[in-house]
């Protein structure tokens, strides 16, 4: 009886495993398709996008072509600058704000925190037209990476502050700070030397979530950056697709180029990313 039950369970497990493999294959199928077709000529892709190797054989031409036409190194650099700067500033500013909010129940702190929490339900669509109006029409500061970076930070500080708020409240013992004050640290020094180092896990979570969001964002950058020299990967992918939509080999290469950086990063950091996203989602 017990043995029967065990074999039944084993069979169920093997079946689940096989089923999951099939589902996973279906999940990554679109990516595989892009990878296959990137090494084929335009004519071969048109004839049969499903064949692994085309009649004209293997080609490496699509990559360098697409890289050059997309000015990939430049847009990659732009994306990198925007993502890194915006992520670092978000982390620093939100941790600082969360610290003063948690440790003091001044009116300004309470109001600021409540307004930030409430603002998290506002979708970007409500703010995009006035942002274009204020920054593009009134102040005329578009086409600058710095403006995009600051806007990114402004949008993400509320969520990040909320997460740091929870972390400081539960993970940073007040006694530790008081010991630092007695030893002669100012609040500013205490924050950087005692509190911030203790917030490592939250910093990692916020960094992962925000960096991914900044890297992939299309709508905000497309409204702010009109000049080709400062554009980021998602915008240039969109423009490239519009210009070369008939040259499907180039398109495949451009799409793969757009996906590769984050996929390579995922290969090394997937454990952290999955963990970070989970804890971020569950808290938020």
């Amino acid at each position: 009886m017990q043995e029967k039950k065990n074999t039944g369970r084993t069979i169920a497990r093997v079946l689940t495993f096989i089923l999951l493999l099939i589902v996973l294959a279906a999940f990554v199928f679109p990516f595989i398709l892009v990878v296959i077709n990137v090494f084929k000529t335009k004519a071969d892709i048109t004839v049969n996008p499903l064949s692994i190797i085309g009649n004209h054989g293997f080609t490496m031409d699509n990559f360098p072509n697409a890289m050059e036409k997309m000015n990939f190194l430049n847009v990659f650099k732009n994306s990198l600058i925007v993502t890194i700067c915006a992520t670092i500033l978000t982390l620093l500013f939100s941790a600082m704000a969360a610290f003063v909010i948690v440790r003091n129940n001044w009116k300004a702190c309470i109001i600021f925190f409540a307004v930030m929490i409430a603002s998290m339900v506002i979708p970007f669509q409500v703010l995009m037209i006035p942002i274009v109006s204020v920054y593009g029409n009134l102040l005329k500061v578009v086409d600058q990476r710095l403006v995009l970076i600051l806007l990114h930070v402004g949008f993400s500080v509320s969520m990040a502050t909320f997460m740091y708020h929870g972390a400081i409240k539960t993970n940073v013992p007040k006694e530790l700070e008081e010991a630092a004050y007695i030893d002669g640290c100012s609040r500013w020094q205490t924050f950087w030397k005692v509190v911030f180092p203790l917030l490592g896990p939250t910093t990692a979570t916020v960094a992962i979530i925000d960096a991914m969001a900044f890297w992939n964002d299309y709508l905000l950058p497309s409204l702010i950056l009109k000049d080709k020299m400062v554009q980021t990967i998602p915008i240039s992918t969109k423009l490239f697709y519009g210009t070369y939509s008939t040259d499907i080999g180039l398109i495949m290469a451009a799409l793969l180029l757009a996906m590769l950086p984050i996929l390579i990063l995922y290969l090394f950091l997937q454990k952290f990313i999955v963990k970070g996203v989970t804890s971020g989602a569950v808290k938020g």
Binding site: A97, F112, M116, S119, L127, V134, V157
Partner: peptide
Amino acid sequence: MFAGPALLLFTGTVIVPL
């Protein structure tokens, strides 16, 4: 000192446009 930068950017991107 602590909340100023966050307050400034948050106001500029969310409150003012709203």
